[in-house]
Nucleic acid binder design. Structure first.
Ligand SMILES: [Zn+2]
Ligand SMILES: [Zn+2]
Ligand SMILES: [Zn+2]
Ligand SMILES: [Zn+2]
Lengths: 136, 136
DNA sequence: AAATGAAATGTAATAACATAACATTTTTCA
DNA sequence: TGAAAAATGTTATGTTATTACATTTCATTT
């Protein structure tokens, strides 16, 4: 079972990982772990851990991102182009839509900022809240 | 009862707000709401809401920030200079120390990015995880 | 000073998010 | 095929946050 998702490295998703990934790919908006659990009851999911374990792996693979300010998860929207962290998320407070953007300039900026502080940067969380174009 | 905190606008903190703010000012590291609750048991705190309500106000006043990636809170470290949002937080994964930085260049960058997407930016969350200089 | 309304507080119950611990099954690969 | 590693199933528990409702404090107006 080998679905090549991120162009760079093919990933073999297990049953639960595939189910959770599919739910997130289909969803319009970010989903909480418990929403995912409810959506997968029919598929046999019974407990939160089934969701969280799948999410852990998907995040590790770079196929899913956690939105820290929402306690929710989204499928990475850069599945075709081998996308490199980090990303920026624009989250609409009204319709809850999320747009994921790569921004090399920003990455450089944050990299310099970290270096200036002798900070060994490992992971960035950049989440912008406001109103999307449709809601304005 | 009028403590002028942020130089710009004096704020009158109520009893519980003052207690929570003092705890956060004293703390070395970010604190969860429940840690704060435990630290204030002696002062008569009995329930989470007493903490969360005080935190809500303190965040509204700009005296405290929530670290979304930790579900924890820190006192704003720019109390003398009337500091304007947004800020960048560098969070050490090892010692849990947090450094809050202002960065006009970054603010401009994020502003432009939002504008380019017709996104009405209201609030930014920028949290960098890694190792601080002391832990390297 | 008394009346009033708004803000803050007290308390209990519950909701929402996440992990620990342990048993079992499936997958990988030598 | 047999052993080790990874994934899964299940129960219980831990952690973070809010709802609902009663009471008190505080500022403002009369
Ligand atoms: Zn992505
Ligand atoms: Zn919107
Ligand atoms: Zn600040
Ligand atoms: Zn450190």
């Amino acid at each position: 079972m080998t679905s090549d998702v991120h162009a760079s490295h093919a990933v073999s998703l297990k049953k639960n990982q595939k189910l959770v990934h599919d739910v997130l790919m289909t969803a319009e908006n970010p989903l909480s772990a418990y929403s995912i659990l409810d959506l997968l009851r029919e598929e046999g999911f019974r407990a939160p851990l089934q969701v969280y374990r799948a999410l852990d792996k998907l995040v590790e693979f770079g196929l899913v991102h956690k939105l820290e300010s929402l306690n929710a998860f989204v499928a990475c929207s850069h599945q075709e182009c081998s996308h490199e962290e980090p990303a920026v998320f624009m989250i609409c407070n009204q319709c809850e839509s999320v747009r994921e953007l790569g921004d090399t300039g920003l990455d450089n900026h944050l990299g310099k900022l970290a270096k200036k502080q002798d900070f060994a940067l490992k992971h960035t969380t950049v989440e912008l809240h406001g109103q999307c174009s449709k809601c304005t």
